[in-house]
């Protein structure tokens, strides 16, 4: 571990010293000002190039990632709501399928039948006048002899 190291340009210390001597390379004079104006130009052209959709996506992203975290919370609540609604719809559908497979008339079908029943009767009566003459009232069922 305590190996003696040569003190020439090849030694680790010397390497580090040389590296330090390289020093920070400062940009040429006036570089920063030009850099900044070019940066502004680029920003402007990028804004023009970007489509409205891209801007919309960026706005959404910015809103979501705002440091207050309000956007993220609202988005999470929205996603949670959508998932809950999906789950409820799915459960309802599954219950209907089960009822159908067990032979019971699903409530939706039942309700439909009840609703459509009077109109069906009316249609029937209108199309058969003889029947109407014999049975003017649908409730008037002939007594068996």
């Amino acid at each position: 571990m305590n190996r003696e190291e040569p003190r020439g340009p090849g030694s680790e210390n010397e390497v580090q010293k040389l590296l330090r001597m390289k020093g920070l390379v400062p940009p040429p004079e006036g570089y920063v000002e030009n850099f900044l104006s070019e940066f502004h130009e680029r920003q402007r052209s990028e804004l023009l190039r970007r489509s409205a959709r891209g801007l919309f996506v960026e706005r959404i992203g910015t809103w979501l990632w705002h440091p207050s975290g309000r956007g993220l919370k609202l988005a999470a609540a929205g996603v949670g709501g959508v998932i809950m609604m999906g789950a409820v719809v799915q459960l309802n559908r599954r219950a209907n399928t089960l009822r159908e497979s067990s032979g019971a008339i699903p409530p939706s079908t039942e309700a439909g039948l009840i609703e459509s029943f009077p109109s069906m009767l009316r249609q029937n009566n209108a199309s058969d006048p003889e029947k109407n003459a014999k049975h003017p009232d649908k409730n008037d069922v002939p007594m068996p002899k």
């Binding site: 920070l24 400062p26 940009p27 570089y31 920063v32 850099f35 900044l36």
Partner: peptide, 15 residues
């Protein structure tokens, strides 16, 4: 921020 960090980052990236 650009003006402040450009010279420092310039050295880093240039090396």
């Amino acid at each position: 921020l650009v003006v402040k960090f450009t010279p420092k980052l310039y050295g880093l990236v240039y090396h």
